[in-house]
Amino acid sequence: MDWVNAVVQGTLLGGLYAMFAAGLSLIFGVMRLVNIAHGDLIVLSAYVALSGAMLLGVSPFVVLILAVPVMAAFGYLLQRLVLNRTMGDDILPPLLVTFGLSVIIQNALLAAYSADPQKLQAGAIETAAFAIGPITVGVMPVIVFATAVAVIAGLQWVFYHTALGRAFRATSDRQDIAQLMGLNRAHVFGLAMALSMAVTAVAGVFLGMRTSFDPAIGGSRLIFGFEAVIIGGLGNLWGTLAGGVILGVAQTLGAKLHPGFQVLSGHVVFLFILAVRPRGLFPRIDG
């Protein structure tokens, strides 16, 4: 039963990873941008929520209403003012600029909040749990997982059923022809980054409620998100959820074998899938 329990907990953890991955996947899909600072932006969101919750004296759930637009606006400005200037055929400029951004965010957080671990206090709900047969499931992990499913369903809906999604897909297909349709590429890219950062804000707040965080953990959150994207298959949002779940389960099973194997076994599963299915488990058919 312990093993079944580990699988269940890992699945729920995978929801969080899927949210890390969704923002990454979104901007890669629209503008082929890989944001090295993605993990640090997740952590930044957690700190924004921390400060918001303290200043306003409200629950982290309420702060979400604040953190999402703040991060989205930040994302839009970041894209318009900085990242758009690096977009082109050469992958080096965006990579190095987001890398520099990652170092800046990390150290700015360090200067502002110190290296001490922090946590978002959500109150009694943190420890609440219910039993399904012999397995005890935390309410918080279930909320996180449900949110992840909702976020991915929402992104899927935006992509395939709204004008914004059409603009994203058209720009992704052919940037110059999309301009002919009256779509300003710089603005479309800005909106994609804003949406990505909105998802990141949700991910960051839930990260902060589930576990403690400090300024240095951004790198590994980027890696988890990236692994979920590659395992699930590029360009497939539901695949990303599956990728997150596989990664989460690999980690909890690894941790059951030996506490030191938790993160390592996730990496090993990722490398194994990369070796046998380089395009991921659920690659987009038309990709």
């Binding site: 890989v34 090295i36 590994s220 890696i223 990236f226 692994e227 030191g260 390592l264 990496h267 490398l271």
Partner: peptide, 24 residues
């Protein structure tokens, strides 16, 4: 292994390898 990843994803792939080394 990591040459299967293109461009920027290659970059993150190299990071994963470094993490695997560190954890191992």
């Amino acid at each position: 292994l990591i040459f299967r990843l293109r461009g920027a994803y290659f970059a993150i792939g190299t990071w994963v390898v470094a993490e695997v080394f560190r954890l191992s």
